[in-house]
């Protein structure tokens, strides 16, 4: 697969698309460029999707899926709010506990998947029902809000009035996860399991153990997104995470991660997050309705994956043929000794 389109090439394509998009929006859409800091501030509106997407990408790299990310985000945010509002805990401590609980919920997903041997899709769908019930019950009739200025920094603060805190965290996390996947044994094992589970098992990888950790990571990142959302909205809701899931999957896939596992990288996912986010916000600012924006996002997903197939040898074959032709010409033109 993708014999003619290595990951670096897809990442480069995404980077170019992002640049073109930004340039086009800044010049063509009045109101999009609101000073350097103002434009960067747009990222605050969609980076929570990005945090979820990075955690989800790790799961998808193993060939699994996590449908419970939205419910975990909501539940963790609600727990954080209850701990600080009702139990009087310091908000940062409450957030830390909520993050640990989020990781625990993800780990529980892993337990259900590996011990009860239920397919990830059905297992995480079932747990998402349970988690969202708990979130609704805990949140009650009027869910908590108003967490104070210092906590708002997480969701809408900036460094020196220019760099949004969310964007800084996103860069750090994306780089961290990228190193984790490409430079550590753990990351290589993740890819190996996704590429060929049986082979990974015979190579000595403790697959269930690894899967539990991976789902724990996804749960942690979902909880992190939930906390950031709570800070950005200065409020929690038991259904606030519901919309995260489908967009996050779209971002992961656009980022070049194969839905079947074993292929893709975090850098691509980060670019996918930025492209989809900027595109949506830009189109809304340009005056397109939410409906048109949503439809076009779906269309772009289809076209981009089709284009990727066209350029690799996965799809129609014409594009691949063209590339092959160019490559063979180059080889012919090159000196015979090289």
């Amino acid at each position: 697969m993708n014999r003619f389109l290595p990951r670096e090439a897809w990442d480069r394509t995404l980077a170019i698309i992002l640049l073109v998009l930004l340039l086009a929006f800044c010049t063509l859409i009045p109101g999009f460029y609101a000073g350097f800091g103002g434009t960067l501030a747009i990222t605050e509106q969609f980076l929570p999707f990005g945090f979820v997407a990075i955690g989800l990408a790790v799961v998808i790299l193993t060939g699994g899926i996590d449908l419970s990310v939205g419910a975990i985000a909501s539940l963790s945010a609600v727990i954080m709010a209850i701990l600080t509002k009702s139990a009087g805990l310091d908000i940062w401590l409450a957030s830390l506990i909520a993050l640990i609980i989020g990781a625990g919920l993800g780990w529980l997903n892993g337990i259900v998947i590996t011990r009860l041997r239920i397919e990830p899709l059905i297992a995480t769908l079932a747990t998402s029902f349970i988690y969202s019930s708990v979130a609704t019950a805990l949140a009650g009739a009027s869910p908590p809000y108003g967490f104070g200025k210092p906590f708002a920094v997480l969701g809408s603060g900036t460094i020196e009035g220019i760099l949004p805190v969310q964007l800084l965290m996103f860069i750090v996390i994306a780089v961290g996860f990228s190193i984790l996947i490409t430079r550590t044994g753990f990351g290589r094992r993740i890819i190996m399991v996704g590429y060929n589970r049986d082979a990974a098992h015979y190579a000595g990888v403790a697959v269930p153990d690894l899967l539990r950790k991976v789902y724990g990571i996804s749960g942690f990142m979902a909880a992190f997104a939930g906390i950031v959302l709570a800070s950005y909205y200065d409020a929690v809701r038991p259904d606030m995470g519901n919309i995260l899931l489908l967009t996050a999957i779209t971002m992961v896939v656009l980022g070049g991660v194969s839905i079947f596992g074993g292929e893709g990288g975090i850098l691509g996912v980060a670019l996918g997050v930025l492209i989809l986010g900027v595109l949506r916000q830009g189109m809304l600012i340009a005056g397109f309705s939410d409906m048109v924006t949503t439809m076009l996002t779906g269309g772009i997903l289809l076209v981009s994956i089709a284009a990727k197939n066209l350029l690799s040898d996965r799809g129609f074959g014409y594009g691949a043929l063209l590339l092959r032709l160019i490559n063979s010409r180059k080889q012919e033109a090159a000196p015979p000794n090289t």
Binding site: P143, D234, A235, R237, L284, I285
Partner: peptide, 26 residues
């Protein structure tokens, strides 16, 4: 998302019936 785009498009007045009282407040 829509409120943010309306701010960027310099609307004079935004009227809204909100899905919940807290989330759109900021």
């Amino acid at each position: 998302d829509i409120i943010n785009s309306l701010i960027a498009r310099r609307f004079n007045v935004i009227t809204i019936t909100s899905n919940n009282p807290t989330q759109p407040a900021p």
